[in-house]
Design a binder for these strands. Structure first.
Lengths: 350, 350
DNA sequence: AGCGTTTTGTTAATCGATTAACTTGCGCGG
DNA sequence: CCGCGCAAGTTAATCGATTAACAAAACGCT
């Protein structure tokens, strides 16, 4: 049988109210009683019944975290950071995958509402308006990614793709690249559109003529095939550098280059996006624009936490906008474009 | 203010009990009343208050899933599969990372108990006995990985490392390898010990003399340095093939080989373990022993689900042992040991 | 019609915490 | 020595569902 607050109270020789006060620190308690209670709780291995607690305080200690797919290496870090923060504040997180399916997303949020979560972070790349509407109607604190709108209970984290991309293009420009192609993500995803736009704008700003920009699917194979297309162009317009919309795509490019006997970075420079863990360990290590994933998770939690008011009345802070930067991580996949042919020979024992 | 069962009852002109019966289907209800209730609930946008529900039934619709670290590519698939199953059965999962810390693991389980979870899956590679004791004492259904013990409320999933390893060694043997080295994981982790033992046993069984078996840390860098050590041996005893305890380690080996101008698989064959997503995309694609991660997640859920009895009395099935196989995935990182020099030329356009 | 059964619905106790309102004990100034 | 005020604890109402026990209605059968 489970051990309840009553058992603790009995063992400590006080009332349940006192135990509650000690445990939650809502009221000062004399040190000696305090000790007794704490010891009793410990001895019995008491674990607060959250269900009862939530019922009483009218709010659960759960936050919901909705992501696209935990199998996508973009998300684990976000999720871990979010949970680490939760732990610090004595909360827990329920993480739900939408599998990129709007319907499933809506469903997930409904489930979360049923769980009486205190707040919901929706960190997917595309957000169904029905979701924001639902959350708003239920007056549940929410934080989104790149939704570009804040409200009393709506916070937003926007990623500054522009900066990282600009850095990347600047770098490539300094290296001497002129024909730079871009491989984007599926256009129905907001994050893919935003990245592409940032690329296009940055190219213009840097004074580089836009090379090809084609779309792929954010996957390794998509990157592979997209790269094939790029390479098939007339020799004149084959790019000397490729920027990919995410690291998985960049890895596909790396493979395609390898299969086509192109050396990276000597013959082709490649820059990825995201800086997933794997990026450090590709062959060659991927130069990439880092998206601060841990920080996204951390910030998302903080955003929710700050909007939480006292269950009684205090409204909690209004939602606000958080802006997170991106920056270029220089590794080995980008170098100056092809040097004169005579320098190329079979030996790669440098 | 939130809408409660009372509001629904009022609107439908019945008692709260009836509403509850309709919603939970514990008792048959006349179709007409049923309709009225359902409509009322719908019209009001009623959402069950899980906190109250849990308190009443004494158990939540939550399962706990304890893993080492979601950032480790071994876990996301397990977690996703577990959650997919949960969704099918109208349950949710709270996933907690232990970060390989016993203390944090115990803490996590305590949190889960507080949440009144209906069951807990502990799928870390090392399990603190205090955890099993706690769960047992609280009579909470639990499923573990390789704990080698089952009970009424304790199920176990054991991974048949032996089979996959045997396959790998057989394969290597057929290819003509004789000097095969092994790079293990940190010996304080059970899974690392089990894998190493399986390797050692298999070597003996296959009639191969055991080469070096050294321990590393399950990380890429650890693999890199371990490989260095192996390569530093006198030429006579440098292995022609290396089996790594996990794919991350194998990737480290791949890097070390590359940095040492050894070609994989021509000069050195490498076999990994786990078959993480990344394994398909290393250069060359990694031959590895696949651990059925999705199946682990799925099975873990099923194990818990089947042990769940009626909250009232029905005890639910007793815990049992599940055995999951491993098998060799042949990709490109293993080949016969170095062939006569004249066969080596630059062209790899096969 | 009369009576036992079954079906359908209601009343009210219950889950385990929180917390407002109340009691008790104690120190201290006048 | 009285009485005020604060500190420390306790009592009991409360949160919103579930569900056992009960009541009423409907049905079937002779």
């Amino acid at each position: 049988m489970a051990i309840g607050i009553k058992d603790v109270a009995a063992r400590a020789g006080v009332s349940t109210a006192t135990v509650s006060h000690v445990l939650n620190g809502n009221r000062p308690t004399r040190p000696t009683t305090r000790q007794r209670v704490l010891q009793a709780a410990n001895a019995l291995g008491y674990a607060q019944n959250q269900a009862a607690r939530n019922l009483a305080v009218g709010r659960s200690s759960l936050f919901g975290l909705v992501i696209s797919d935990i199998r996508n290496p973009f998300f684990p870090e976000i999720s871990a950071a979010f949970q680490d923060q939760a732990l610090l504040h004595d909360m827990d997180a329920v993480v739900l995958n939408t599998n990129y399916d709007d319907h499933r997303m809506l469903n997930s949020v409904k489930r979360l509402i049923g769980l009486q979560v205190a707040g919901v972070a929706v960190l997917t790349s595309e957000i169904d308006p029905a979701v924001t509407a639902l959350l708003e109607e239920r007056e549940i604190a929410a934080v989104y990614l790149d939704l570009g709108k804040v409200d009393r209970l709506v916070a937003n984290i926007s990623i500054d793709y522009e900066h990282g991309i600009a850095e990347a293009l600047e770098y490539l420009g300094q290296l001497g690249h002129r024909r730079i192609a871009y491989i984007g993500g599926p256009p129905h995803l907001l994050s893919a559109r935003r990245r592409k736009q940032a690329f296009l704008d940055s190219m213009r700003a840097t004074g580089l003529e836009a090379g090809h920009a084609i779309d792929a699917d954010f996957g390794v194979k998509g990157g592979y095939f997209a790269c094939s297309k790029l390479l098939a162009a007339s020799t004149e317009s084959v790019p000397t550098a490729i920027v990919a919309a995410n690291d998985l795509t960049a890895i596909g490019v790396l493979h395609r280059a390898h299969d086509g006997n192109l050396r990276v970075p000597e013959d082709l420079s490649v820059i990825g996006f995201d800086d997933i863990l794997m990026a450090e360990f590709t062959q060659p290590a991927l130069t990439t624009v880092a998206v601060p994933r841990s920080e996204i998770g951390r910030t998302a939690f903080q955003a929710l936490w700050s909007m939480l008011g006292e269950p009684g009345g205090e409204p909690g802070a209004a939602g606000r906008e958080f802006r997170l930067g991106t920056r270029l991580i220089k590794r080995q996949s980008a170098l100056p474009p092809r040097t004169p042919p005579e320098e190329r020979d079979a030996s790669d024992q440098s």
